[in-house]
Design a binder for these strands. Structure first.
Length: 364
DNA sequence: AAAACATACAACCGCACCCGT
DNA sequence: TACGGGTGCGGTTGTATGTTT
């Protein structure tokens, strides 16, 4: 083990030589003994009192991340992993906040686990770890190149795209950013009115919206890009996707060529969700509420277009009429649907995060 | 067997915020 | 109000260990 001794560092340790690098068992023992007997008090004074040639900051870090008795060591459980993913989707890289939802885990541990494990899993699933949306099409070649070993070309590949990126100026669309300010104000209840309010407040927070997933053929989406921006401007996508709602797309599949979905491309509308795969994860009351008030829920321009055109968003007009989806089309695909559902489900459905109120509270 | 490479994780660094003076 | 010390946080680096070639 190489121990570096230097005179550089923080103001708290600039007056004396301090060790850097890995801690020895003897140093650990000294620190534990001191804090057990006296508490840490002012961290800058700990090294001197404990007889350590370390800076206070280093002592604090060692204690918090490694020596604390209430730390939970060992690998992360699946439940913890899901919690991390879910909270990260809402809070972003706020590791300390995320760690608060995992008793015995430190921010550093969560961060390392994210960077070394979860990140790769999400990418392997076609998810952008930063946004939790499906990777944009221009990222897919990279993804495929990196994952060819694990790819089964006979199965569809999915990616999430944000509906707001389905434009020619996709790159200009700002990426998903956690909205802690909105979360802080968000209220969630079972009433329809509250639901509407919540969605308005949490426009981007991937809460209930995240359960509104619709699968479409990526090729067709891209080919129809212009149509999506037309003045007529509405398709099933516009209805199902608010400006920020993620949509699941099968990117490519030899067993499911574009034609296979061609007849269904407009069928993935409000009622045409990928029934087999997604219906189980939806809460009926939420579904109904959103069906009643999609315009309010989806605050995008497109929804307003529906209002302007006097369309009945409950019944669905042309959108609602096209629900002939072959539900068995994705049998045997290699995507981990459960994982994706978990990653996109409202947190209270599977994690120990009681509610977004809790998260909002923690944000403050 | 050894070198090269990959991975996990501990630790460091710089910055921002809080609070007391 | 300005300043400085203490602390917390997120990004980054360094190192031990495992795996592959």
């Amino acid at each position: 083990m190489k121990v570096i001794v230097c005179e550089m560092g923080h103001h708290c340790c600039s007056k004396q030589k301090v060790k850097r690098g890995l801690w020895s068992p003897e140093e650990d023992e000294k620190l534990i003994k001191h804090i057990t007997n006296h508490g840490h008090g002012c961290w800058s004074s700990v090294p001197k009192l404990a007889g350590l040639q370390r800076c206070g900051k280093s002592c604090r870090l060692r204690w918090i991340n490694y020596l604390r008795p209430d730390l939970r060591r060992g690998s992360f459980t699946e439940h913890e992993e899901r919690t991390i993913i879910d909270v990260h989707r809402i809070l972003g890289n706020r590791w300390a906040q995320i760690a608060k939802h995992l008793p015995g885990r430190t921010d550093n541990e969560v961060k390392n686990f994210w960077n070394s494990c979860i990140k790769k899993k999400l990418i392997a699933q076609g998810l952008d770890p930063n946004t939790h949306n499906l990777l944009s099409p221009h990222q897919i070649p990279i993804l495929n190149a990196n994952n060819n070993k694990n790819m089964d070309s006979t199965k569809p590949v999915f990616a999430i795209i944000n509906t707001s990126t389905q434009t020619k100026d996709a790159k200009k669309v700002p990426p998903f950013q956690p909205r802690s300010d909105a979360l802080a104000n968000a209220q969630f209840s079972s009433s329809a009115n509250d639901s509407i309010m919540s969605h308005n407040l949490c426009e981007n927070s991937l809460t209930r919206q995240s359960s509104n997933l619709y699968y479409q053929d990526c090729n067709i989406v891209l080919e129809n890009d212009a149509r999506h921006q037309s003045s007529l401007g509405f398709s099933s996508q516009h209805l199902v996707g608010s400006a920020n709602m993620p949509i699941l797309l099968p990117l490519s599949s030899s067993s499911h060529p574009p034609d296979h979905f061609g007849s269904a491309v407009q069928s993935w509308g409000v009622n045409g969700g990928f029934g087999v795969g997604l219906e189980p994860v939806r809460r009926p009351e939420v579904y109904d509420q959103e069906m009643l008030q999609p315009v309010m829920v989806n605050q995008g321009v497109v929804a307003q277009e529906f209002v302007n055109k006097g369309l009945d968003l409950r019944g669905g007009g042309e959108v609602h009429n096209q629900t002939n989806v072959e539900m068995g089309s994705f049998d045997g695909c290699n995507i981990d649907l459960e994982f994706m559902e978990a990653a996109l489900m409202p947190c209270e459905m599977y994690s120990n995060v009681g509610s977004l109120n809790q998260l909002a509270w923690d944000c403050n």
